[in-house]
Amino acid sequence: MKNNTAEPPGTMIEMIKVSKLYPPDVVALKDVSISVAVGEMFFIIGMSGAGKTTLLKLISSMEPPTNGLIEISGNPIHQLKGYKLARLRQKIGVAYQDFKLLADRTTAENIAISMEVSYKKPSIIRRRVKDLLAQLNLTDKHNTITGELSRGEQQRVTLARAIANSPTMILVDEPTGNLDATTTEKVMQLLTKCNKSGATIVIATHDDSIYRHTPHRIMELRAGRTYSIVGGNGT
């Protein structure tokens, strides 16, 4: 097993020997340790059931780990509660694999939610929503109920919501699963733009077209364990 242990300065994600077990005895992750630097783009790859989504859930504090330590910007995220946890979550944008869209709300309302919780001005929210919809070829879907959108469109709305609040870290689960090649490129361009603006990006995917020629680090998971970490400066 290859492993890159060089810790970059300014760590965004620190995971040390993290395990996640689901009852009765399903091992989703076992002793995973990674460090992701601030402003880094990081790929997590692996087959279905390898533990990619579980890893993102642990990083976004949707679920607690069974063992191990997870720190985000130096904060042990699973020990945070109340206001501190909410503030940290506002800085993390997550595009979920199951989208988590409100099916009875419009596209614009779904995207606006992530900005409303941090009390952005309505004029700023409206401008940002229009801008994101234009970048993702969804301008004509502004007032469409998300329940009426196609899977590919819903996926892009999820991504727009994840990056709308200009978070410092963006977690994306299978961002191109339902997209054609052109839209996949657009999505990747948008994520690269966010990364260049300073956001840390973690992408979980099994679509090798988006990481095949990447200069960024790629971690492969197999059966919940780190199989390899390759790429980046330490390759």
């Binding site: 109340g82 503030r87 800085k91």
Partner: peptide, 16 residues
């Protein structure tokens, strides 16, 4: 329920 769950995930405070 779905909206409240989402609000938590996007960082809504308890008071919100």
């Amino acid at each position: 329920q779905a909206e409240l769950e989402l609000l938590k995930l996007v960082g809504a405070t308890n008071n919100y």
